[in-house]
Amino acid sequence: MSLQLLPRWITLQRDETPETVAFLSGAALATLDAVLRDPNGSLPCALLQDRMALDAGVACLKLEGRNESGSDIRDAVCLARAGDRLGPAGEMFMGWRKLARINLGVSGWKGRVENALPTALAHQAVSILGTLSGTPVGQASDILAELLPRFPREEAGALMLADVALARASGWERPVPLLGAHMARRDIRAIAAGAGEPRLFVHRAIVAACDTAIRLAADLDLRVAKLRSVAPKLRAKGSDAALALFLSHDAVSPSVMLSPIIQGTLMPMTDRAARRLCDRLVELGVVRELTGRPTFRLYGV
């Protein structure tokens, strides 16, 4: 059964009065909540989170005046070898990826949040996350209203903490990069300048973020169902471990992540076997080649 997208009365509403926006954001958040609780047990949450982390990374780089695209980030992260620095774009994404993988139900999560944040904000995490109360959107906007005026150039870190607060208050297992990709630049500037109404801005961003997230979830849900259905046809040794990577990573590089050993396992795979597996998955129509290049190809669901 495919996922229900947000009804049009939420996404097409143009009324900007605070009550309306708050009502729409509540409805959108509740719908996303139902999606993330995954009643069918089929949603590839890790992959969804990773894609959203990529979007948040791109958006935050823009806020910092950089113009790296999602493909630049993929190249940096997938082609770096042990010991290489990732550069600003890769590091931004890795911050969001790390954040989105933190299990908020396991003790020590605050320390892990601290590790994912940019240094300038890291020490703020524990104290600020301990003082919050209220609704998810209320908590997220309190964080932005507290941090952005003091650290106007730490948009990414402030948005990360806001998304952590949102996820905690919503009772989600892991932070979902929602505000990271959807807070408008002018709204962030306004909050930093102490102007405007942070709550209204966050409500507005939540409607857009939930719409995008649910569409992405619906799309990935279908794609992954196809991927799972071909799994028994794959006879390559290690193909299960390789599929697990596709189900949790935005992009997979056969030459770095699948060979000589499959990342996260001790299972060896030759370069040739890795490339053949990826070609086969493309042939079966369950993964896409993401770069359009003849070499250094990257694959993803």
Partner: peptide, 15 residues
């Protein structure tokens, strides 16, 4: 040194 560049010879990038 940063990530390799996706070009022939996989040259190093610098950061």
């Amino acid at each position: 040194t940063g990530p390799r560049s996706p070009r022939a010879g996989a040259p190093f990038t610098y950061v």
